[in-house]
């Protein structure tokens, strides 16, 4: 159970301007650490609001200035993805093979990964990279975050060359609908 004080602090942070939020975020994300899953399950709207506000920020400079906080931000992000995937029937149907993906920003030191597991029907992710992933995605940090939060359509973003993808084309076309459905869901929640 997420404590009320934390929820209240998060809600108050929405009232502040971008600069104040940027200052407050490291502390806020540090407090959320370890409770990401509970927060996502119990307060999905609040998490969506945090992610929405963050995707309006200059992600690359935030990550460059706060590398540790960036990892905590990713943990929250991926908790959201995991929980969304668990509860979404369409995504469950779309998970029909194992896919591993690394993300690497080309304008700041941000890396992440996602694993689609067919036997568990899960989509999990986190900061840092996997050894020998199926697919490697590189691009600007705000585009990579947008892919997860739903502001960048995975297929359209690729076609419009907003990011690069390296790996077997067949794995990419299996991953795209999953990411698309998740980002559509994330947009609905916002």
């Amino acid at each position: 159970m997420v404590d009320d004080e934390l929820v209240q602090r998060i809600e108050e942070s929405f009232e502040t301007d971008d600069e104040a939020l940027e200052e407050e975020l490291p502390g806020l994300l540090a407090d959320i650490e370890g409770q990401s899953d509970e927060l996502v399950r119990e307060q999905p709207e609040i998490v969506s609001k945090i992610l929405n506000r963050m995707s309006e920020m200059d992600i690359a400079s935030f990550v460059s200035e706060n590398p540790e906080t960036a990892d905590q931000f990713q943990d929250l992000l991926w908790s959201g993805v995991r929980v969304l995937a668990e509860g979404n029937e369409e995504v469950q149907q779309q998970i029909n093979e194992d896919i591993t993906v690394n993300f690497e920003a080309d304008n700041c030191p941000m890396t992440g990964h996602v694993e689609v597991d067919k036997s568990e029907s899960t989509v999990t992710g986190g900061a840092g990279v996997l050894d020998d992933p199926d697919i490697a995605i590189t691009g600007p940090a705000d585009v990579l975050v947008g892919l997860i939060t739903g502001t960048v359509d995975p297929i359209q973003g690729f076609m419009q060359q907003q990011y690069q993808m390296d790996g077997p084309v067949q794995k990419g076309t299996r991953l795209a609908p999953i990411m698309n459905t998740l980002s559509e869901q994330a947009q609905v929640d916002q």
Binding site: Q156, V169, T173, A176, P177
Partner: peptide, 26 residues
């Protein structure tokens, strides 16, 4: 990009959308 997006969401592979050899779609 929507044409690709819609087709992939319908479950088509890339080389069904553009019938190039798989090597070229790669």
């Amino acid at each position: 990009s929507n044409i690709f997006s819609n087709a992939i969401m319908e479950g088509y592979d890339m080389n069904e959308i553009v019938p190039f050899p798989e090597s070229v779609t790669q």
